[in-house]
């Protein structure tokens, strides 16, 4: 053994890339610019499926934290992931990327909308995109649920959140703060 060349003392790190500040900015810029129908579904697709910076479980957890904290969810997620990978500069790069691109687009749209917003074909195209974007959000939620394979107490809390939001139409702060203790209890009960 002593004659062998020195072995790597640490186990091989998991093959999960750790993005730099520029990569955080550019990736979040792209997420913002393709983020039709809201960015959370797109952020999951890019960060979990394409870049593999975080796992499905990690993304869902950061999104959950982002909802409990006040402020825009997608912003809270961007700041958490930016901070995790590259500290303060990473958090700033991710959030500026997320908002910068769409703000320029909106600036153009705001000017165009004043002129063309009531043109029938524009309204029809927007209606078609809205219907497809709603399906995209539902498909993303189905995908996450399928991959996380939640135990039934966790599933029950998720179903309660769905019904409270979509059927009872309760205010979001009430749903988040009211169901969080049950979710935590379910996680405690099913902990490994």
């Amino acid at each position: 053994m002593a004659d062998n060349p020195p072995q790597e003392s640490e186990p091989a790190p998991p093959a999960r890339p750790r993005p730099g500040v520029a990569a955080l900015f550019l990736t979040y810029l792209r997420i913002g610019l393709i983020g039709f129908g809201g960015v959370n579904a797109w952020a999951r697709r890019v960060l979990v499926e394409e870049k593999r910076w975080v796992t499905e479980q990690e993304y869902a957890e950061v999104l959950g934290l982002g909802q409990v904290l006040p402020g825009p969810n997608a912003l809270n997620v961007a700041i958490h992931l930016g901070e995790r990978f590259r500290g303060g500069p990473g958090a700033l790069a991710a959030s500026v990327g997320l908002f910068g691109g769409p703000m320029l687009v909106l600036l153009g749209l705001a000017m165009l909308h004043d002129q063309y917003g009531e043109v029938p074909v524009v309204k029809a195209v927007l209606a078609g995109i809205a219907a497809a974007a709603a399906g995209m959000i539902l498909g993303t939620a189905a995908k996450i649920t399928e991959k996380l394979r939640p135990a039934w107490p966790i599933l029950a809390v998720g179903l309660a959140a769905l019904l409270a939001g979509a059927v009872l139409r309760l205010p979001l702060p009430a749903i988040v703060l009211g169901l969080a203790p049950f979710g935590i209890a379910a996680a405690w009960w099913t902990r490994r």
Partner: peptide, 27 residues
């Protein structure tokens, strides 16, 4: 870890809920 895992179902349930509400508005 327990708190974070516990917030996941609320987050995912609310994604479903927003999708349903948007689909209803678009329908």
């Amino acid at each position: 870890r327990v708190v974070e895992r516990g917030l996941v179902p609320v987050a995912v349930g609310l994604i479903f809920s927003s999708g349903i509400i948007l689909a209803q508005a678009a329908a």
